[in-house]
Design a binder for these strands. Structure first.
Lengths: 205, 205
DNA sequence: GCATTACGCTACGAGTCGTAGCGAAAGCAT
DNA sequence: ATGCTTTCGCTACGACTCGTAGCGTAATGC
């Protein structure tokens, strides 16, 4: 790891302010222009840096947008509201609020589309965005089992499969609702969704 | 409607063969190049038509890819396997098989991403791709109610909301599994998913 | 034949890409 | 302070794609 300021290196250090300015400018450009019309030259101008500086830090548009969008998902936290249903509703509403932002919509789906043909990009998305979300599922599940709201898992392989399934169902449903159906994942929808999901998990075990 | 051969018009009619050649070439280019590197000039060359011909029929890359991908989903049929669970598994497996194709992955997600900033494009996607899928949900649900596997709906507004929810959950989960998690939605996964969904729907009612 | 429309081809200005080269700036070490 | 090293901003560049215009030709209906 020698990312931001390697500390043990000679020479002029990279400006950390430039990094945050570039990522902010990228999100701004995503809002104004969308994915396809976003150009790196435009982002550099918005950020107040030279185009060459941008290319020295990111290999291309895909990687840049992944990092810019990833910061949006940093705010995701697992709330402790006392019951599993309330916890799920809380985290899903957070997720929906992020996805409602235009820079998240256009940026995230575009890089996912590109990742179908670029393994390195898919791995970058997984590490910086997806895994953080999946972790919430695992934590919430463990907490619910400690509360006795869900039966404890004996087979760890089976537990992993179930966690993957829950994750795909939750994230997929919210994304589909927001982007494809183009309707808001508001409290009413989240309540209905959570009810179906919880009853399904409880009954299927 | 005066699409393919208006029949009541003078002059040379549009070549229907060119249409199919262009759409097939578009899918081929999606496989070879992916969305971002796909150019209309390349598609025209693959289809054996002039670039100008392509621009006379489609206003841009987005619309062309929507039509090319929409044809993939024409094969979707609701099977009659006797039980709701088997019907769902059948149609979900079909959906997963289509989404497993590289031209569907990269093309569909890319146009959905673009549609977040283009209402006309979103409407085109809805009419030619999404509505056809949603119809399967409505039909399958009606059939299950006729069989007595699901309680009949009294409130039509509530029924519409439930159908929308089911649709977002099913389509969203399969898409997320295939594209984001990048794992196959095979029979084992579909069985587990269907079990959770059905128990959720039955218990929540 | 005649009018009408679609087609193939060529050419064009405009815009973007990613890179190279340069001098200046900002740190660390002695 | 004085170097040494790395980053930064700037300019310029060839290559490529875009979407359109213009023109002659091909294929229909009347």
């Amino acid at each position: 790891m020698q990312s931001s300021t390697p500390a043990g290196r000679a020479g002029r250090p990279r400006s950390a302010a430039a990094d945050t300015a570039i990522l902010a400018a990228t999100r701004e450009a995503l809002v104004d222009l969308g994915w396809s019309k976003l150009t790196l030259g435009d982002v550099a101008m918005r950020a107040g840096v030279a185009k060459t500086t941008l290319y020295r830090r990111w290999s291309g548009k895909n990687e840049l947008v992944v990092d810019a969008v990833a910061e949006l998902f940093d705010q995701l936290r697992l709330p402790d509201r006392g019951t599993l249903a309330a916890d799920i509703e809380g985290v899903v509403l957070q997720f929906a609020a992020i996805l409602a932002r235009p820079e998240a919509k256009s940026g995230l789906m575009a890089v996912v589309a590109e990742s179908t043909r670029d393994d390195a990009l898919r791995e970058r998305i997984r590490a910086s965005i997806v895994d953080r979300q999946k972790r919430l599922v695992v934590e919430g599940r463990a907490r619910a089992q400690a509360r006795g709201e869900l039966p404890p898992e004996t087979d760890p392989a089976e537990a992993a499969r179930t966690a993957d399934l829950i994750f795909d169902v939750v994230a997929g449903a919210v994304v589909h609702r927001t982007l494809v159906s183009a309707e808001p994942a508001d409290e009413e929808w989240v309540r209905g969704f959570t009810r179906v999901l919880l009853h399904g998990l409880a009954s299927a075990a």
